[in-house]
Design a protein around this nucleic acid. Structure first.
Lengths: 353, 353
DNA sequence: ATTTAGCACTCAAAAACCACAAGTGCTAAC
DNA sequence: GTTAGCACTTGTGGTTTTTGAGTGCTAAAT
């Protein structure tokens, strides 16, 4: 999975010096948020160069599409491609310092239900990075079934209560094609509990699908009812994560580049809409480690001027969700990346416990 | 419950004409959002008055603190007190037209769980008024207990699953002082189910508290365990509503008077903080009908420039929550009030079903 | 063949200025 | 009590000027 931008970035050759200058420029711009002029850059670079020389280099970088000037007499700012190069080649990802790690472990300690953990992870991300944190609700496939319960409602609907092993209760309402007696429901639940409690949901699902056929043949009424109900329930429960938890949106209002109210509104609309964000997160779910979408790379207008840094998190080797942050393109990647990475790791661990 | 502003407003005497002019001014300002000058007002009033006369009246109104001018050569805008007078005396609250009512009934139809209903009500409010809608999660005291279940977790904690009658599942984790065997938990649950299912939570609570003493004396181990656990559970469940659902915040970004990003940030911070908003809603929970807080009346800085229109909603005669909208002071009260009122009524009905 | 000093040029942002329109308060006449 | 008239105030919008940061280019220096 290599984005078009990334591909383009890979082909770019730069002299040592140009690369260094680009790095310093991006760093400076991330810090200050103002276009960087040749004089400043010459000084900040540490190299013994005159502004004029720096200007020449800048002209080259501009031609390559790595920087641009907002107008003739302003300094240079990084383009998306410039950021790309920066994050791909120039960032040294150091592990988080132990003190912070300790705090993370503390917040994401065991003994909480998945939902609580997700919320904490999101809050943690946003607090530490001063950006908006987001975490998808984990897929439940590796949760272990502890107890299932059916309760009849009016109108041919049934309330299903599912108690899962990492302390969580899910409940959903299913609609039945044909009516079942209260007693049938009770016995079906007992049957399912007997047979499947202690197994993980994926296994349960597989087993039920498998059983469904031969049971129909056997005409074993009880087993058949149970399997039918179970099929509905677990099909529903194992659908892709359709939700995420987002915290700290208000942090984004602090960045000047997003201080246009209309722009901000569109961004927040996208947050409450959720659809686009979910699509984007979906793209990350198969990636190996930390993924970064810079500005327009994501392809969503509402996210113009924003970057997303994300990482999948796993339980028992399997990816069950994605988390990350969203902020202005000029975010402090070098710091954000390890934070996202660590959070993903620790959330995964906490969910496994 | 009369606010200080309201009290002050009650004492104000106005001539027929002055009152009319104030009303027209407020209406105009709510529509346009611009200071209203004497010429415009003279025309809009329908009265056959010269601008000069209107100016004289305005000078009086200004002295009474009902209007003010942003600067010497601008028109007048209503003050908080002006709005107060307007909503208290000059608004004719007409019931919603039948078509809209029909839509409301449709959205808040029966057959949904409380949480779903709350979310729908909030969305409905925000959509119809183009403001932010908010609805507190209803107190559960009149929910009927259908089933209670204990599941032991590690570390002396117990997961309690509570199935309530308007289709809802609540789960909470309680911490135990002394350990109970798995069997004891199971039997306690059976005992509680046997004894209390079908009763409303408040009654359950009362009964348990009542029983607790005499049971301790009896030394009936089972009943005692059950009562102790039940006491914890229902004490927890019946606490005041500690949460609300808010929808359509982004609408607020459309109003010019809130278009200062810093102001907006503070407002949104208050929304996520929730505490202040909850305090405010708490004040409404005892009121009879629709309550209105205009601008600073609420006393919270973050809500400067905002008004809140709220109404409690009831299930079976008892207030179980509050709902309303929040928007700029210059909102269209005459329309918003019936909407809030109707939503409260219908949400109550839907929850009772 | 780089690098750099020098210089003319550009452009946005800030300040200064102007004219104008909207609106006021006041006074004196109706 | 009402209104016409008038002087005065003040934000707004437009134009112009100034300023300063920063550029690109050229020609000299290394």
């Amino acid at each position: 999975m290599v984005s078009p931008m990334e591909e383009r970035a890979l082909q770019i050759e730069l002299t040592q010096r140009a690369e260094h200058l680009l790095r310093v420029l991006v760093e400076q711009y991330i810090r200050e948020g103002l276009p960087v002029g040749s004089r400043t850059l010459a000084r900040a670079s540490g190299l013994d160069l005159s502004p004029a020389t720096v200007r020449n280099v800048m002209a080259d970088l501009e031609e390559m599409g790595l920087v641009r000037s907002p107008h003739t007499s302003a300094g240079r700012v990084p383009t998306v491609l410039g950021y790309r190069l920066f994050v791909d080649r120039m960032i040294e990802v150091r592990p988080l310092d132990e003190a912070l790690m300790e705090e993370f472990r503390d917040v994401l300690g065991p003994g909480q239900g998945p939902h609580e953990l997700v919320e904490r992870a999101s809050t943690l991300l946003s607090r530490v990075t001063q950006l908006a944190g987001l975490v998808t609700v984990p897929r439940a496939e590796h949760a272990v079934l502890r107890r299932i319960e059916f309760l009849e409602l009016s109108g041919g609907k049934v309330l299903v209560v599912l108690v899962l092993e990492p302390h969580e209760v899910q409940n959903l309402i299913i609609e039945l094609e044909r009516p079942y007696s209260r007693e049938a429901l009770e016995r079906a639940a007992a049957f399912l509990n007997e047979r499947f409690s202690g197994m993980d949901l994926q296994a349960v699902r597989a087993r039920i699908v498998e059983d469904l056929d031969c049971m129909r043949r056997d005409m074993d009424r009880l087993a058949c009812t149970a399997a039918e109900l179970g099929d509905k329930v677990f099909a529903e429960t194992l659908r892709d994560p359709e939700d995420f938890v987002m915290m700290g949106q208000t942090h984004l209002m602090r960045y000047a580049e997003l201080s246009d109210v209309e722009k901000l509104r569109q961004l927040f609309e996208a947050f409450t809409e959720k659809r686009e964000i979910l699509e984007l997160l979906d793209k990350c779910i198969e990636a190996e480690g930390v993924q970064i979408f810079i500005g327009q790379e994501s392809g969503y207008d509402a996210l113009a001027g924003c970057s997303v840094v994300s990482a999948p998190y796993r339980v028992g080797g399997d990816i069950v969700g994605v988390l990350g942050v969203i902020g202005p393109t000029r975010m402090h990647y070098e710091r954000v990346i390890p934070v996202v990475d660590a959070t993903a790791r620790l959330l995964g661990e906490a969910l496994s416990a």
